[in-house]
């Protein structure tokens, strides 16, 4: 497996602050939030094209297990066609679309109470984000029940 590390993983620019905030308060690193969003988007079978793109993190931070999950998703959607997982740029690009749909699910169903109300940008309210890890873990746990 290639698991290429030199790809810049992109997200919609409007989520820049949200990614930064969640890195500080909710989860360990950006690739983890991205992975959560991909899984949410994939589970709901929802993809959303990125109309504008902002480079968020390097694919070298993606863990082998996360990469393996990305390959599994592509294989499942492509009738186990192994040639579809040869090009990591294409795999990551597809995952960006799942993540773009997944982050909307996350915002709608989990993060609404933790967002700053005073700004147009999507960003976390640091004063209410202390318990965010619990909210996120609980949300994931609810989805699998």
């Amino acid at each position: 497996m290639n698991m290429a590390g030199e790809i810049r993983v992109r997200t919609d620019p409007k989520y820049r602050e949200l990614y930064n905030g969640i890195k500080s308060f909710g989860m360990g690193d950006m690739h983890e939030l991205f992975f959560l969003c991909v899984c949410l988007g994939y589970k709901a079978r929802e993809k959303k094209r990125l109309t504008s793109k902002d480079e968020r993190f390097w694919s070298r931070t993606v863990t082998p297990d996360e990469y393996a999950c990305y390959y599994a998703m592509v294989l499942e959607r492509n009738d186990m066609d192994l040639s579809k997982i040869q090009d990591d740029t294409a795999v990551i690009s597809e995952m960006e679309e799942y993540a773009n749909a997944g982050i909307e699910i996350l915002l709608r169903e989990c993060l609404s109470d933790y967002l700053a109300k005073t700004t147009n940008e999507v960003r976390l309210d640091p004063t209410s984000s202390e318990m965010l890890p619990r909210a996120l873990l609980h949300f994931v746990f609810e989805q699998i029940q």
Binding site: E32, L36, A72, M73, F141
Partner: peptide
């Protein structure tokens, strides 16, 4: 406990696609 949770959410996300993992495996 919150710190512990913070470090485990990323890994827990894979539970959301456990059916896919199972199927492909």
């Amino acid at each position: 406990l919150l710190l512990d949770m913070k470090s485990r959410i990323g890994k827990s996300s894979q539970l959301l696609i456990s059916d896919t993992v199972e199927h492909v495996f």
